[in-house]
Amino acid sequence: MTGATDVERTPKTYRAHLPILWWLRRRSYLLFVVRELSSVFVAWFVVFLLLLVVSVARGEEAYRRFLDWSANPVVLAVNIVALLFVVYHALTWFNLAPKAMILNVRGRRVPPPLVAFAHFGAWLVVSIVVAWIVVG
């Protein structure tokens, strides 16, 4: 190998090499990764929801079995952890909403706290309506 070929093989873009556990270095890095990992629990929820829907479609006996399964300590523990992650997702999502949505009404910018407040209000209303439909 000559020096010239080594130069040709050098990637054109510079890539900083980070250790694999870089996200443990700072609290803010860790919270970033926690927020990203919340998506795994969002996906888990889809699976859980579909299992519920299928059990309801299959009949009362299957629904009973689903309720028993969801009370299993392992499933319960997974769902408690999942709930913490999705609540963290919701809090961070709504807090970022004013930065993502720049709203102007009659040429004046809607104050960022109002945008966040509207999102938290919508969260409350949706939660109450969903709980009301479910519990009946």
Binding site: L49, N79, L83, H89, A131
Partner: peptide
């Protein structure tokens, strides 16, 4: 869109079917 829908809908449904009803 998925982030918004998940933030609005998932916590309440997971709270009810994952924690409140089982307990």
């Amino acid at each position: 869109a998925g982030g918004l829908v998940a933030a609005l809908m998932v916590p309440v449904l997971l709270l009810l079917f994952g924690v409140v009803f089982p307990l």
